[in-house]
Nucleic acid binder design. Sequence first.
DNA 1: GACCCGTGGGG
DNA 2: TCCCCAAGGGT
Length: 356
Amino acid sequence: MPDNAPRTIVPLAIAPALLHWYDHNARDLPWRARPGSNAPDPYRVWLSEVMLQQTQVASVIPYFDKFTRAWPTVEALAASEDADLMAAWAGLGYYARARNLLACAREVARRGEFPDTEAGLRELPGVGGYTAAAIAAIAFGRRAVVVDANVERVVSRLFALEEALPGAKARIYALTDTITPELRSGDFAQAMMDLGSGICTARSPKCLLCPLRAHCAGFAGGTPERFPIKSAKPPKPQRHGTMFWLERDGRVLLVRRPDKGLLGGMRALPTGPWADSPPRLEGAPAAAGWQLLDEQVSHGFTHFNLDVALAAATIAAHAGAALPGEWWPVADLESAGLPTVFAKAARTFRRRLCAQ
DNA sequence: GACCCGTGGGG
DNA sequence: TCCCCAAGGGT
């Protein structure tokens, strides 16, 4: 071990150094209490934490602003229509979060307030271990051990943890417990995330700017970017599908996807099955003179990549009345709240069908 | 524990 | 271009 290595990590020295740094370097984010104001609004903390699950701050901010303008309180959100909320969430991803968000808002509105303990929060739909701890600490001033991907990375480096994720999660939680202060654990958690986001980054960490450098075994060892060690991931399979553009009198047929599963509950273009090989016109919403475009759309999901063929047809204004779905004005598709893969396909359809 | 579930940014 | 990654939760 190099001469500059700390002989032992001193857990109690970490929080004061980090909180001092945070007091001078905290990011100004819309869900954080402004200096001099009261404690943050639990509704805004909860909403931001759900939006931030596996999603970066820059992606969340416009959605957070839109949601808090449309629904300023949890009671207002609880009174919203499912379709309005799902459409507002479109593009943010992980759509089960939106379904759970509404269920949670209705539960909280029925109770009259948010639970103010970690265990109580953990019972809410869409609130897991991380989110319950974060809300308890940030909104209610409870001492809680908050572990997200930032904390996993920072702690792995602080302790030069050789055990690989995800197996190391229990060990990381225990180590985080040893450095979490009794007071200001909410600020401590947010400070860890700001540090992970801006300094202790996954690649090329900025150790010379780090307030915890003197306490970091990873830095002392010379290769902090080696941590956290992760087990290898299997490759993503390639799948294929077809989307159908059925137009009638200036409108296009949209359907609602089943509540469970991929893109559950979202508006969508009709699709056939998603299979290992191109399913061609299988699953078309109607018998029609389908024309295959000579252009495809590709999209990556969490666990597979998708290539989509595009089939278009036009039917007469008096036809297709019995088809399930909505005939949506083509000129107003942006307001339909389509998930990104369908928005991509719709843009391609419109470009190719109008440009000929 | 394994698997499912989106999206956009950055190297 | 491609791969990695992110303020995780549900089943």
